[in-house]
Amino acid sequence: MEVILVIVIGVLYASGLYMILRRSFVKVIIGLIFLGHAANLLIFTVGRISKGIPAFISIEGTLAENAADPLPQALILTAIVIGFGVQAFAIVLFKRAYQTTGTDDLDELNTTDELIQ
């Protein structure tokens, strides 16, 4: 079952990297989102997955032997939320840049230092 995840991670990374190399900033943001998903799934997978046994302590007060590892999950959970914050910030940042400079071609945005002067 991991094989599917491995392929998914590869595809997500590839599309994320491809998008982040684009010149249009909407695409770059999509690239960021994909890279976030890819990284989360990577941590999730290398932390070993288990099927149908979440990391909860049973009524008897024990954790099942083959339960999921809670630590990667905790890491990913905060990463998801932080990712949202970063996305929102990136969207607003690019939007502002677009409004100020009138272009969303990142190749044209490489002379910001001069613009400020």
Binding site: V81, F84, G85, A88, V92
Partner: peptide, 13 residues
């Protein structure tokens, strides 16, 4: 905090 941050971002936008 999560509620405040998310609403702040969405409302501002």
């Amino acid at each position: 905090l999560v509620l405040g941050v998310s609403t702040k971002i969405i409302f501002s936008l």
